[in-house]
Simulated assay, not measured.
Amino acid sequence: MATLLHLDSAVFPQGSASRDVTAAFVAAWREQHPDGQVVYRDLAADPLPHLDASAISAGADDALRGELAAELANADAVLIGAPMYNFSIPSTLKAWLDQVIIVGHNAAPGGPVTGTPFTVVASRGGSYASGTPRADFEFVQNYLEKVLTGLLGAEVDFIVPELTLAHSKPEMAELVPLADASRTQAFTDAKEKAKALAARLAA
């Protein structure tokens, strides 16, 4: 029985592209694993405290950090909704990362998270793809890929719904068809990646 750890971090509970796509991923995952477990944390609704000196000193012996680290270690796969806020990840997601990554415990070669597949839904209001004017402002995929692979030894895959503000900003009206195509592709990717990952873990 596979366990999926699902984290959402978008501020708004409705109308969030990252939440919509992670929900589609979970639905497809459950189809493959009807008896499986999904552990869910809404980091916006129930934010974690910022890391402090006592928690750093205690490491995995800190009650909260130990709980989060165990939750992560017990997951067969991880799904993260990570919308772009001010060119980077939400502060609530950063707080989770700071709490859960413990040097010498799971941030170590061959640690308990090594090889765990992470799927990140990195939504953004505009486009930051290679070759676009703001490509250099992309610090969501760049950061998460480095921290998750470099510290935890995880495998990381991204689903990227772009131009999510096109329908609400008149100056982006000409980009609506591209936004719709990106959203459709994100849902397709979520369903296909969830099914493929579920099948891989069941093998």
Rank of each mutant, 00 (worst) to 15 (best):
M1F: 07
A2S: 12
T3I: 10
L4H: 00
L5S: 13
L7W: 05
A10T: 06
A10K: 04
V11N: 03
F12V: 03
Q14P: 05
Q14R: 11
G15Y: 02
G15D: 01
G15R: 04
S16H: 01
S18T: 11
R19G: 07
R19K: 06
D20L: 04
D20T: 08
F25L: 06
V26C: 07
W29R: 12
R30K: 11
R30D: 15
E31H: 10
Q32V: 11
H33Y: 11
P34D: 15
G36H: 01
Y40H: 14
Y40T: 14
D42V: 05
A44N: 06
A44I: 08
A45K: 10
D46N: 13
L48R: 07
P49Q: 12
S54H: 01
S54F: 00
S57I: 10
A60D: 15
D61W: 00
D62H: 05
L64D: 09
R65I: 05
E67W: 00
E71G: 08
L72R: 03
A73Q: 06
D76S: 08
P83H: 02
P83I: 04
P83E: 00
Y85L: 13
Y85A: 09
F87R: 14
S91L: 06
T92F: 00
L93D: 02
A95L: 07
A95G: 09
W96T: 13
L97D: 03
L97V: 13
Q99M: 02
I102R: 01
V103S: 11
V103C: 08
V103K: 07
G104H: 02
H105G: 13
A107M: 09
A107G: 10
A107F: 03
A108M: 12
G111Q: 10
V113T: 10
T114D: 14
G115E: 14
T116N: 09
F118I: 15
S123K: 12
S123N: 11
R124L: 09
G126A: 10
T132W: 05
R134W: 15
D136F: 12
N142W: 08
Y143L: 03
Y143R: 00
L144M: 05
V147K: 00
L148S: 03
L151C: 09
L151M: 09
F158Y: 02
F158C: 07
P161S: 08
E162I: 06
E162N: 08
L163V: 03
T164R: 12
L165K: 10
K169M: 14
E171W: 13
M172L: 14
M172Q: 12
E174D: 15
L175D: 15
V176C: 04
P177H: 09
L178Y: 11
L178W: 13
L178C: 05
S182M: 07
T184I: 09
T184Y: 01
T184M: 03
Q185S: 13
A186G: 11
A190Y: 00
K193E: 10
K193Y: 01
A194R: 02
A196N: 13
A199Y: 01
A202H: 12
A203W: 08
